[in-house]
Amino acid sequence: MTDLAFSKDAMKEYEWMLTRYPNKEAALLPTLRIAEREFENLDPAAMKYVADLMGLSPAKVLGVVTFYTHYRREGTGTYHLQVCSTLSCALRGSEDVCAHLSAKLGVGLGETTDDGLFTLSKVECLASCDTAPMLQCNDDYHEGLTLEDVDHLIDRLREEAKAGGAA
């Protein structure tokens, strides 16, 4: 097992975070965000590190992580394509976007491409219903999508990954 540890900057951010809440536990969600960034995803070792750091039980941390859908979990590709499939997006063709991506990438929902680049998921409303259909890729929203836009996005991300610029 490798020894995980926050970088100096991350530790500083964590310590600042603690000053914003009356108790440590309240800083758990923001701390998990730091861990997600530092360790790329929240695998068991990352969760254990956070638990030890904050003096919480690993079970408590696991319980919190699994309650929420947005944390980056183990096994997610470099780019997590999250297609909104709630009603407003569905009314404007999110099904086609999903089917197109699935065919293009050769993966089903929840699956990651063999090269580890893309994970495809369906998610619930992302508060961007006026630009339906839309998807979230890592931190960014891609809105008002046509199937052509989707193709361009995938091409661009592949190039970005090749150039080593992937997040």
Partner: peptide
């Protein structure tokens, strides 16, 4: 920042989440 859960829009759910809980 929340982390993806509709129920955290309900006010008591939001407060529980702010306390670092499910």
């Amino acid at each position: 920042r929340g982390a993806g859960a509709y129920i955290c829009g309900e006010e008591t759910g939001m407060l529980t989440s702010l306390e670092g809980e499910r």
